[in-house]
Design a protein around this nucleic acid. Structure first.
Lengths: 304, 304
DNA sequence: TTGAAAGCGATACCAG
DNA sequence: CTGGTATCGCTTTCAA
């Protein structure tokens, strides 16, 4: 029979059994290698459970995100993985009874299933690492502060300074928007200050790209004159071959386990689906990964 | 009505109207920033035409690719975008009447709709560029030679040497598999040769990652002792912020317009779908992009 | 213009 | 166990 290639109609089947064995994934930025890694993890885990993946890119636009979610719901995906660009809405409304697992961007106090890293801790230890290297003038380039990832990292930075009894100077605290241009712009401003910082912590990979460009253009020496730690590997590292290790100074970063986060999020969702929505399975809370400080060469002891 | 959030059931609709407004995309490697760029282009173009995207990663495994295609067909996607890892099968069987647009990897003599770059030409001009810099000992790291992308690039390399009346030495022609490890391994072998080449052309981004690592480890100076040109940007360049420009020597590359290729492929597919399968619309042939040689610093005149 | 009925291709159920 | 039939939620058609 099937030798003469017959493919059972999955859409008819889906209509009847009321499930599509499909999960929807919404990410805010397809240029970011962090989110690409997450998607890779999701795809792998989903496939190995027999699920297909509908991929959506909101491009950090709340309207597009809403439209994507509507489409996914219309298509009757069994569940949704979401890194929302519009957390306020997420927190407020419950737009459906389709299970959702949030990743990376989680509203404060969110009770549902989610996976993320401990951003406060991650930024704290990166900052402490710089302090321990002797730096006293530390700058921070923040992301969109309406997002917990950004505000938590800022919080971690603040806390570390406080514990070290170092002042937090206003001109050393920059607000970016997670995109490369803002890393570049804020980087330039920091480097051209009368008293530039001797170390900069940058809140994500895209902005780090911009910051590195700013450093290159101003011919400031890194790490001799300024130390840099970035969040995320700015480029995917395949099989341990990471571009970050080949950069002018090898880049010291706080690396999030993107692939594992994606895998885990997908697994949590699939488990919820097989338990058929029985919400409180114990697994249904926030799962927190630990970020890893990858010490390379871009952060060095404070120059004299 | 819809104020009380009602989402029309797209799966029931699909069953009735016999179309899903969904396209399937199968890529061979999710670590490769080239394919990620393609997917980004596909996603954008698809969404703007109202299509959703089912994403599949074959991981360069023919079996997985077959399974993915079966699933996509079962799910009644309206069309498929495919960079196949198993071109022989593609050329032979016509597994369905679901429209397919091939991208990047096209069997020789394929008659259907497809988008790619002129790989012979791309490798030819990169090689000629090296020859014009005075290099006489040129090496080439090939990809999987069963793939036209790989064999065409090899062909372009050969042709350029021939036109320059330069010999093609066996130990300078390496076979890789498009993965980083093979770029690393072959790179080491080349660099440790009694008479190492003064220039290396590397067939894709992943292998270039490996090659750069080999160069770093052996402390060979690039471009002073060996010039390097890679295919593809090994990292995504977001809004003009490319990591390649921040590498130890800024990397000279042959860049494929991945995003545009993805867009174009999706557009071709969508057009075919709206013309309802009337095959020969004039648009339905191979669309060829031009690769761009991005001259930076990793390729320099031959050392004395 | 509006409303009722048939049917898309599977599954699930019930009777034979 | 085998086979006929209702059903999923929508579009389409046809009749009123």
């Amino acid at each position: 029979m099937k030798a003469l290639n017959y493919h059972p109609d999955e859409v008819a089947r889906s209509l009847r059994v009321k499930k599509t064995t499909t999960i929807g994934v919404v990410i805010p930025d397809f240029s970011s290698s962090f989110f690409v890694e997450v998607v890779r993890g999701v795809e792998d885990a989903a496939r190995s459970s027999g699920y297909s993946v509908l991929l959506c890119n909101s491009n950090d636009d709340p309207q597009q995100e809403q439209r994507h979610l509507r489409v996914l719901l219309s298509r009757r995906v069994d569940g949704i993985l979401l890194a929302s660009t519009d957390l306020y809405s997420i927190g407020q409304q419950f737009w459906s009874n389709t299970p959702v697992v949030l990743f990376d961007r989680i509203p404060n106090g969110y009770q549902g299933p989610a996976v993320a890293i401990d951003n406060v801790q991650a930024a704290y230890s990166a900052t402490k690492y710089l302090v321990d290297l002797g730096h006293r003038s530390l700058a921070f380039i923040a992301g969109r502060l309406d997002l917990p990832t950004a505000s938590d990292r800022a919080e971690g930075f603040r806390k570390a300074l406080e514990h070290a009894h170092l002042p937090l100077r206003g001109e050393y605290f920059k607000r970016g928007d997670y995109h490369p241009q803002s890393g570049y712009q804020n980087g330039l401003e920091l480097l051209k200050l009368p008293h530039p910082p001797t170390a900069i912590l940058c809140s994500n990979g895209m902005m780090t790209l911009g910051l590195l460009r700013a450093i290159a253009e101003t011919h400031v020496l890194c790490p001799d004159e300024v130390s840099v730690i970035g969040f995320d590997e700015p480029a995917p590292d395949a099989n341990g071959f990471s571009l970050s290790t080949l950069l002018k100074p090898e880049l010291t970063v706080v690396a999030q386990p993107g692939y594992e986060m994606g895998q885990r999020a997908a697994q949590m969702l699939v488990k919820t689906l097989s338990h058929n929505g029985s919400e409180d399975e114990g697994e249904n809370k926030l799962f927190t990964f630990q970020a890893e400080l990858r010490v390379r060469k871009s952060a060095a002891p404070r120059p004299q």
